[in-house]
């Protein structure tokens, strides 16, 4: 069984500070209106009583990537280590992947007139570094790992995250603990 590199999102540690999202833009030099990693507020009453908790999402590097299946130009590549890469030079900006991805990951860049998405900073990984978002997280709430090694203590989804089974998302979550309001 091949490796499946993916992100672990620890919503128990995530404080919703957006550093990951900004570091990603900084490293990947993205247009102001493009974000490859986004911090979402989990709906406040998801767990009964209101609270403020967050999750940080980027590409889920799916086992069956809908983007790759829909792409007419084979611009997407699923690497042996599981990372889904978008080859910009092959992209013709047809937007089929934008339609197909259940997680809104590929984004159409109006200036480049092409699509782009998180590639798990594979060139940083290949150099032995962490992805920009991972290394910038002040609370170590995101990390990257071969998700085949993870057990059941890691959830495949959190409330608000679309069905991970559609495309076999490899993102794994650590559930937030919920504050008790006295």
């Amino acid at each position: 069984m091949g490796r499946k590199m993916g992100f672990v999102v620890d919503s128990n540690r995530c404080i919703g500070c957006h550093s990951c999202s900004m570091a990603c833009k900084n490293y990947n030099q993205l247009n102001p209106d493009i974000t490859w990693r986004t911090v979402y507020d989990i709906k406040e009453d998801t767990y009964g009583q209101p609270t403020r908790i967050t999750m940080s999402l980027a590409c889920n590097h799916c086992d069956i990537p809908a983007c790759k299946e829909a792409c007419p130009t084979n611009a997407y590549e699923k690497r042996e280590d599981g990372i889904v890469i978008h080859h910009e030079e092959r992209c013709i900006g047809c937007g089929m992947c934008v339609y197909a991805c259940p997680y809104n990951v590929p984004q159409f860049d109006k200036e480049k007139k092409k699509v782009g998405k998180c590639h798990l900073c594979y060139e940083r990984l290949d150099n032995g570094q962490s992805p920009a978002c991972v290394s910038s997280c002040p609370t170590q709430a995101i990390y990257h790992i071969d998700t085949t090694s993870l057990g059941d203590e890691f959830a495949k989804s959190l409330p608000g995250f679309p069905d991970p089974e559609i495309t076999k998302s490899t993102t794994r979550f650590i559930k937030p603990s919920i504050v008790r309001k006295l």
Partner: peptide
Amino acid sequence: VELDINQV
């Protein structure tokens, strides 16, 4: 309307 975070 596509599937979206926090919409389900």
